Simulated assay, not measured.
Amino acid sequence: MNHEGGTTMRLFDTTTLPPQEETSDKPVIGYVHSIESFGSVDGPGIRYIAFLQGCRMRCEYCHNPDTWNIGVGEEMTAEDILDDAMRYKSFWGETGGITCSGGESLIQIDFIIDLFTKAKAMGITTCLDTSGGPFTRDEPWFSKFEQLMAVTDISLVDIKHINSDEHRKLTGFGNENILDMIQYMSSHDCDMWIRHVLVPTRTDFDVYLAQLGDYIKTLHNVQKVEILPYHTMGVNKYHELGIKYPLEGIQAPTPDRVKNAENLLHVMDYTGYKTWRPKK
């Protein structure tokens, strides 16, 4: 979910820091992989993006394997993030603000709750970028998720694959809990963007794209649907880390296949993002 590009990208060491236990008398610590101060594709408007460290999925097309390890990265508090982010507030306008991405952002749900709660108190628009992997209705996690949704203005949800068996082949996990999270968001009027990575030989099949398009049609409050064409920009990271790249030799989808996927997902039907404003 983390991506290359942006105006300012600071990379931190992600290999040496141990996990830190949370206690009531200490600030909540977030483990941050990198910061992008002027992002334009991770939510509405211009956004300050904190890419959080940690992900349990092993998506075959992941282009940031350096975000996988949990409990490592640059230790930051909500105040650290907000103090830095506020330097860019003049660029945000009505829709911009702070996005938490990953890795998988929900692995650090306590930190995001703390950050978003304080951000909202300062009038900052909040955006959660997630693939939903950690979602569960088990307690105490589910109550934390409800608390997070109360201070989240919009979510970017990456649906890896609509078919659970294929999702497991692609990521190592099924998608039942992820679709359950999306249903919760839909039924509780949580604004969201839906994203889908188009990968030749993995997700680029008309039957599955049509099923995904039909599924998205059943949801409420979908402001935007995006097709993200697979790319190979992260291959060198695998080589540097000594990890075998699962999709060696697979090229980006052709423009015709991207257009086909956009048609099957009815991308043009979702235009709410053009006039979207955070709920008061």
Rank of each mutant, 00 (worst) to 15 (best):
residue 2 N to G: 09
residue 3 H to W: 14
residue 8 T to E: 12
residue 13 D to Q: 02
residue 16 T to V: 02
residue 18 P to N: 10
residue 20 Q to W: 03
residue 22 E to H: 08
residue 26 K to R: 11
residue 29 I to L: 10
residue 29 I to M: 13
residue 35 I to E: 06
residue 43 G to C: 13
residue 44 P to E: 09
residue 47 R to E: 12
residue 49 I to S: 11
residue 51 F to D: 07
residue 59 C to E: 03
residue 63 H to G: 14
residue 64 N to R: 04
residue 64 N to I: 01
residue 65 P to E: 11
residue 71 G to S: 03
residue 72 V to A: 01
residue 72 V to G: 00
residue 81 I to K: 00
residue 82 L to R: 08
residue 83 D to F: 05
residue 88 Y to W: 15
residue 90 S to H: 12
residue 90 S to Q: 04
residue 92 W to E: 10
residue 101 S to K: 02
residue 102 G to S: 00
residue 102 G to A: 01
residue 105 S to A: 15
residue 107 I to Y: 09
residue 108 Q to D: 10
residue 108 Q to Y: 12
residue 113 I to M: 05
residue 113 I to G: 01
residue 113 I to N: 08
residue 116 F to W: 03
residue 118 K to R: 14
residue 129 D to A: 06
residue 130 T to W: 00
residue 135 F to P: 11
residue 152 T to I: 03
residue 162 I to K: 03
residue 174 G to F: 01
residue 174 G to A: 05
residue 175 N to I: 02
residue 184 Y to E: 07
residue 185 M to L: 15
residue 186 S to I: 11
residue 188 H to W: 03
residue 197 V to H: 05
residue 198 L to P: 13
residue 199 V to H: 06
residue 199 V to S: 11
residue 203 T to N: 10
residue 208 Y to I: 09
residue 217 K to D: 07
residue 224 K to E: 12
residue 226 E to L: 10
residue 226 E to Y: 07
residue 229 P to S: 11
residue 233 M to R: 10
residue 234 G to A: 09
residue 238 Y to P: 09
residue 243 I to P: 01
residue 244 K to E: 14
residue 257 R to Y: 00
residue 259 K to Y: 12
residue 265 L to M: 12
residue 274 K to G: 01
